[in-house]
Structures are given as C-alpha cells and as structure tokens.
Amino acid sequence: MMIEEQFWETLDRAALPARVGTLAKEGWRLVQICGSCHEAFEILYSFDKDDRFLSLRVAFSKDDPVLPSITESYFGAFSYENEMQDLFGLKLTGLKLNFNGNFYRLAKKNPFLDTPPAVAPAPGGVSS
C-alpha cells in the first residue's frame, strides 16, 4: 500500500486568485475543488504536477459567503464553482461562466448548507 505524500497550504481568500494564477503559470493541473460547510466554510483546491499533489485550504465564516473565482486562471473550474454556488449558496465573484443557480436542478435550494441533525439511532437491529 502506497500512501501518497500530500502537501497543504492554508491561505486567505483574498490571496487565492494570485496564488492560483502562479500555479497555473507553473503548469499545475487543477484536480478538484471541494467545498464543505460545518461551522465555517472550508474550500479545498487540489493541484497536481509531476506526481506532486498540493491542496490549498481557504476557510471563511458562514456569514460572509463570498469567494473569488479562479476561472481567470483555470476556465474548467466553472463546473466546480457553479456546483458550490448551487449546493452551498456561495457567491462567486468574477465567475466567467455563471449558470446563476441553474446548473443543478434541485428540489431544495442549497441542500448542503444545513448542518445535519444529530445522529438518530437507526431502526432495526436487535430489541429485547
């Protein structure tokens, strides 16, 4: 079993476009963008170059759900950013291809924004 060494960087969202721009110039490939929201928003941007794996971590409060887009450097990021916009209700500034909340057709608006209720015991199992 090989456990890959992975690198992490934490940065402020204001510094994100500049850092991503540098990575794009250096030839890194955008692997994925992962949004998560528990106590605060945490967005992870992963890049890959010559088998090196780097993730940028951007965290900010739920009260201010605004994030600069990275579509300037990586145009293909629009799908991830539209996904975050639809699932978490984030506002992406400078998004080059914005579907304005119509990328995901969902029954409920921003379904991933709610924190899940406390774990309820599942039915079934044993009772005596």
């Binding site: 995901y104 057709r105 969902l106 379904p111 991933f112």
Partner: peptide, 11 residues
C-alpha cells in the same frame, strides 16, 4: 444542467 438524480451520498 444536471441534478435530476442528485442523491446526496456525500452528505
């Protein structure tokens, strides 16, 4: 546009 069968498995 997608999301017709979104199942929320990540959640």
């Amino acid at each position: 546009s997608i999301g017709f069968i979104h199942r929320g498995l990540e959640k």
